[in-house]
Amino acid sequence: MSTKQIIGVFDDEALLLKATQKLKSHGVNIRDIYGPSADHDLIKNLTRESKLPYLSVFTGILTILLTFAFVYYVTVIDYPLHYGGKPVFAFPSLVVVMYLLCILITGAFTTFSFLTSEKMFPGKAPRLVDPRAAIDRFYLVLERNFNPDEITEWLREEGAEEIIEKETEA
């Protein structure tokens, strides 16, 4: 199925923000915004909070548990060796190991999860609306669930540099 999209091109985030607010108040569905950078307010306004932090916390807790199991197995169960008169299970020493492994694994896993959720991998070709979206223009992509002329009009009012109508495959 192919849908038609209206894309407003902006060169300033401030204008963009105002435009999105206006369009949103009119009930226009904003599909996405492509640009070289993202404004924090824009993100706040348009997107839901990411669930990445929950994943991260979960991974962290799991890692701590697994690491503890690992070091306990190694030092106490598998081959208890005696170092400097310490008991085989010298917990304070293990804390450091658990802590570091936790950070390492959590960090790596979170990054990996991000890449997976974004379907990013080295060598993937970017699907850009326009090359300039990666340089200095913002592309406000709207669904055409309203009268296109009306949307165009609103966009123009809000200072869009250019308005593009595009047919894309869903």
Binding site: L81, H82, Y83, G84, G85, K86
Partner: peptide, 19 residues
């Protein structure tokens, strides 16, 4: 041959231990 040998604690590869 210290029973609380400082050298044993610090070897990362368990090359020196107490028998």
């Amino acid at each position: 041959h210290c029973d609380h040998a400082p050298c044993e604690n610090v070897c990362p590869v368990a090359a020196t231990t107490h028998s």
